[in-house]
């Protein structure tokens, strides 16, 4: 009964998720639920398994046990591209963009159409594509750099570009791995602003170390430690949890 409810109410339900690399359990019996429209931030010390959780959700790593349900669909048995098609977008820790292509081409390739071989061969740059690219470029502050080769962008701009590449896919669940890492203070501010704008109407999972940034954006926080949930709740609650202070915030 309650199981059925969880499928209905939550965008993402992770239950009993375990992955074992040669006996080492990077993620160990982890459960959490993300609601519609929620911004969930996962924090925790290095090696806690945060990135592995994102890898498991997007299919990059196969789980050993447990289930990941996204809008009632079991993701653990789907291929990576099918997971993307069902509405999950993922940004990697290091900016992962196509350096040899222009900003325009980067966004165009991420536009969710013509994803089969034939579709890609006969894909046309029509008005719909141009408008979507322009709109996203505007959002990520790169509208005057559309024809710049992406490899020439600054680190912060690359991060934005990758976020833009996700946005153009219009995912229902957005997963961002350290979106402000390596950014200047000014860039961080703009990114927080950007995230606040783009997270409207979709659920977001963010991994981040920058506590100020986490406080700015998080609805709920999950603290991970050694592959397990250490604490969960509002930032206020988590900050004052003695276990969290001991393993993570204390130093």
């Amino acid at each position: 009964m309650s199981d059925k409810n969880s499928v209905k109410d939550f965008v993402l339900s992770v239950e009993g998720l375990t992955v074992s690399f040669d006996g080492f359990k990077a993620v160990n019996d982890l459960s959490f639920y993300v609601e519609e429209g929620e911004i969930r931030v996962i924090i925790g010390p290095n090696g806690a398994g945060k990135t592995t959780v994102l890898d498991l959700i997007c299919g990059k790593t196969k789980s050993t046990e447990g289930s990941i349900k996204f809008r009632g669909k079991e993701l653990t048995k789907m291929t990576e591209h099918a997971i993307v098609h069902s509405g999950v977008g993922r940004k990697f820790q290091n900016p992962s963009i196509y350096e040899d292509l222009t900003v325009f081409e980067n966004l165009e390739l991420s536009f969710p159409r013509g994803r089969s071989v034939a579709g890609a061969l006969f894909f046309r740059r029509d008005k719909e594509v141009l408008e979507a690219v322009e709109e996203v470029a505007e959002t990520i502050f790169l509208h005057d750099q559309l024809h710049t080769t992406a490899g020439l962008l600054s680190h912060g701009q690359k991060q934005w570009l990758e976020i833009g590449m996700l946005l153009i896919q219009k995912p229902d669940l957005l997963m961002l791995d350290e979106p402000v890492a390596g950014m200047s203070v000014a860039e961080r501010k703009r990114t927080a602003e950007l995230l606040n704008r783009i997270t409207k109407g979709r659920s977001v999972i963010v991994i981040e170390h920058d506590m100020q940034f986490v406080e700015d954006i998080a609805h709920r926080v999950t603290v991970m430690h050694q592959g397990k949930t250490l604490s969960e709740g509002s930032m206020e609650r988590v900050k004052n949890d003695p276990k969290v202070i001991e393993v993570y915030l204390g130093h």
């Binding site: 997007c58 990059k60 291929t79 990576e80 591209h81 993307v84 098609h85 977008g89 993922r90 990697f92 992962s96 963009i97 196509y98 350096e99 040899d100 292509l101 081409e105 980067n106 165009e108 390739l109 991420s110 969710p112 013509g114 994803r115 089969s116 071989v117 890609a120 061969l121 006969f122 894909f123 990758e162 590449m165 896919q169």
Partner: peptide
Amino acid sequence: VRKSKLGRLLVAMRGREDRVRFSGYDVSSF
């Protein structure tokens, strides 16, 4: 082929195969 989107996808795959895969493409079919 080179001038189609598939050509650009090939260039993209050459550098960032994972990004292409997680943009919803079945990399192996290309």
